[in-house]
């Protein structure tokens, strides 16, 4: 079920709240949050490979706050151009970079500067030269049309009020036949109007 943003929802405030929340996840991931973070969570609850996570810098994996596992959907082929929409501190991005190898490219897009900094530093520490991190958000991807083989994302679309626009952007940048491998949240019950307007429920 897609949850659409109410017409009078303060989208600018939501964007600011999301940036504040995830800047805190980047700089103080051991703080108090209403969602899990870190490599132990990713391995035990989402099925990530413990050894692959252990090979990444803790500064990257400690800020992981995904809700699913896009890598479990299908193998990302060597040589592919992959984009991680809302890459955060870079856990999924760096795993993708390892999979595409030196002939591929892994491009992360995130609107939170503190997260981008972690991802860039993490790629450098791993010696991954096929990684690029760009500023941007899901509704305006800084990428050319039909330029990407695989789009991954994890726990990001649920933070975007205008989901149709975000998905249209994914369609725009993918090559025909390209794959979207998306981790996100679904809601099985209809939410009340009050819940839909509760900004705290949108930021996690």
């Amino acid at each position: 079920m897609a949850v659409m943003c109410p017409v009078d929802f303060d989208k600018a405030r939501l964007r600011a709240e999301v940036q504040t929340m995830y800047a805190r996840v980047a700089t103080a991931p051991d703080g108090t949050f209403h969602f899990h973070r870190g490599p132990a969570y990713a391995a035990t609850r989402l099925g990530y490979d413990h050894n692959e996570l252990a090979a990444l810098p803790l500064e990257v994996t400690s800020s992981f706050a995904g809700v699913a596992n896009p890598h479990a959907i299908g193998a990302i082929p060597a040589g592919a151009v992959v984009v991680d929409v809302g890459c955060g501190a870079g856990t999924d991005l760096l795993l993708a970079a390892r999979r595409v190898g030196p002939t591929g490219r892994a491009i992360g897009v995130d609107m939170t500067e503190a997260m981008r900094k972690r991802a860039i530093e993490g790629a450098a520490r791993c010696g991954l030269t096929n990684v690029e991190v760009r500023a941007g958000d899901a509704t305006r991807l800084p990428l050319d049309d039909r330029s990407v083989d695989v789009v991954i994302s994890n726990g990001v679309l649920n933070l975007v009020p205008d989901k149709e626009r975000a998905v249209a952007e994914i369609a725009r940048v993918l090559k025909p036949g390209g794959r979207a491998q998306i981790g996100d949240i679904v809601i099985g019950e209809v939410l009340s109007d009050d819940s839909l307007r509760d900004i705290d429920l949108w930021t996690g």
Partner: peptide
Amino acid sequence: QGVNLSAVR
């Protein structure tokens, strides 16, 4: 719940 979604353009 968290979910994985697969789709092809």
